[in-house]
Design a protein around this nucleic acid. Sequence first.
DNA 1: CATGAATGAGTGTTCATTCAT
DNA 2: GATGAATGAACACTCATTCAT
Lengths: 210, 210, 210, 210
Amino acid sequence: MQDPTPQGEKKRQRRKDARPSEIIAAAMQLWAERGFAATRLEDVAAGAHIAKGTIYRYFPSKEALFEAALQARIVATMDRARDMAQGFDGPTSQMLSGFFETIRTELVDGGSSVFLRVLLSEGHRFPDLVARYERVVLSRGMSTVRAILAAGVARGDLRPEAADCDPRLVMAPAMMLSLWGTVFTTEGLPDMRSALAQHVAILMGGLGRR
Amino acid sequence: MQDPTPQGEKKRQRRKDARPSEIIAAAMQLWAERGFAATRLEDVAAGAHIAKGTIYRYFPSKEALFEAALQARIVATMDRARDMAQGFDGPTSQMLSGFFETIRTELVDGGSSVFLRVLLSEGHRFPDLVARYERVVLSRGMSTVRAILAAGVARGDLRPEAADCDPRLVMAPAMMLSLWGTVFTTEGLPDMRSALAQHVAILMGGLGRR
Amino acid sequence: MQDPTPQGEKKRQRRKDARPSEIIAAAMQLWAERGFAATRLEDVAAGAHIAKGTIYRYFPSKEALFEAALQARIVATMDRARDMAQGFDGPTSQMLSGFFETIRTELVDGGSSVFLRVLLSEGHRFPDLVARYERVVLSRGMSTVRAILAAGVARGDLRPEAADCDPRLVMAPAMMLSLWGTVFTTEGLPDMRSALAQHVAILMGGLGRR
Amino acid sequence: MQDPTPQGEKKRQRRKDARPSEIIAAAMQLWAERGFAATRLEDVAAGAHIAKGTIYRYFPSKEALFEAALQARIVATMDRARDMAQGFDGPTSQMLSGFFETIRTELVDGGSSVFLRVLLSEGHRFPDLVARYERVVLSRGMSTVRAILAAGVARGDLRPEAADCDPRLVMAPAMMLSLWGTVFTTEGLPDMRSALAQHVAILMGGLGRR
DNA sequence: CATGAATGAGTGTTCATTCAT
DNA sequence: GATGAATGAACACTCATTCAT
């Protein structure tokens, strides 16, 4: 009598609140397996154990679902990565390792490499999304790299020219290796963590003080 | 006059022989512009100035066309790259530059980055193709890198440990930058040649003799 | 306090009783604006400030709502019109004017032209409704016209042949003009009242005593 | 050998040329029976004995099909009607009769009343079509009426005030009766031709010289 | 009783593929 | 061989209707 939202209401409500992320999770799994275009919304629905129409209560279109997934999964991580870079003041090699580990965790463990893959191959159809991804993900990543390099120069870990290094060169192996593992064989190759450690070593050698 | 292959016939014959590569050229151009899934076979036909049905005279399906294009465009180039690497015996930095320039030419100017993009995001639909691409393109590229590194070590340009370097780390920036330019903005960033020159410098610093 | 129908109850009761007509009112407004097929039940619910499911407490289906709206809105008016015609004994031109004004008020101001529009274009889906509309609305209207004409002949206002006039000819302009204004431009044309006055004049000239 | 389009080609060509009008014919029949919204494109295809996709070779959308049907069926007729009115110089009553017969033939026999019905009830979804219908059909019809009335005044058949008569009053019965017959019973009522003859008589009485 | 989350049948549209000419 | 008209399976999206709360 006193409670206008009794126990009964809550179960459905709890479900409703969880739906969007359940749908996103199902979608990302399938996109990772089959690609964006090749995944039917009906499959996503089945993966989330709901009916096709239910998706449309939460996302107005397939593209919007992609956008929401992107938003939901990445922003937080990139912020975290940047905070880490700015807050932490250890040796440059350690900052780079931390940065790469963050990227690896997000892209590989968190499954965010789908976004990169989809944007790379179907990006022409979603110019707005590409623009947002650049703004939110790529440029933040590049800023982080620049900050790390600048800090390294300031600290004396790196040579002054390191500040002018194209940040994509620093990020590329982390990105590429994440993609690599989703399609190509990695047999006979170092695991991603070791490879990134090698990358740090090369960078420190190539950019560091002689 | 009784000649069964008169002048007219020959022209047609020449035309007919050229068809497959004309179709492939048209397809690659469009795939590069719009992506594989978003390009209709009808557009490819129009680009090749033939009728839609004619494509099926030469390729049994859209996927087969993709496969043929991949086969046709890449093998030669990769062979060239390897030959170049093996045949040439200059300083390591020069060999790396040459190798990257070859990759860049092929992927960017030749438009082969489509293959990488498609395979990366829709590879699961083409397991055989992925396997072949790995065998023919990726592993050859990695062999080339290993050969260059080994030659560098032998020459004394590189430290012995360079021979154990994951070849993907060497290739990744060249691959990633090729993909980058097909979707993302490059404004405010060095052009690809300069970036690869930086990459060579970093590698030489990171892997080279102190 | 022990009263089983206290003040609060009553208000709710009054509310509940009013629901059907509130729903009908909301529906007719939207049907008039967008047409029957293009109006979603959800919009009707929103217009009536209730939840979608609540409509089903009162009407078992969308078609049933249409039927109920038809029933509710028209019978009364047509009865009124007939009463007016039969009760009043003025000059024929005045009776016709009054009749047309009644039709105009109902169809245009009251929004009942939707029924005519829907029945005209989707009537085949509602054979029962069409039959009822004919019985209740059209044939009553025609009776009224016949009564007016007969009275006019009896009075000496009209020529005897007027009694044989197809009543649809008398009603058609009033009906058509009501429909016209719901879709087509009326710019540069007389307003409906003036037009109907012209119509009365023509009828009186064409059917009246020379 | 001399004929680049031999017999074989022709059969298909003849078919192709006929397709659009076959599709339109099938569509109009079904729209007349069931209304526009309630008729699936698949039904139209079945009615034209073709596959659903074939419709899209000739019309880019359902709406475009409606538009094409409208264009195809009506313009010619309305032009004919206007030519008739302008070219013919007989008594006004005869011109009116001719005009109404043209309208009747087109709307009833030619099935064009569908357009009116669809526009009346679903016109809100097609503002462009409504505008075109007004421009092409309605305003031409009204011009024709005005021309007939003006000619009648000039001839001395009609009183001067007839020139100011709202042309919709003249057309309304012809339009309304066409619609009437598609949904409502006409039992016990004069057939359309007789009714329109009565209408002409009334108009001549109401607008004509005393 | 009221709610609105969930459903799923239904429809317009696309496009790889076929095949009569 | 070459053509392009025809096909029909497939898919995104809508919305009347249901039902757990």
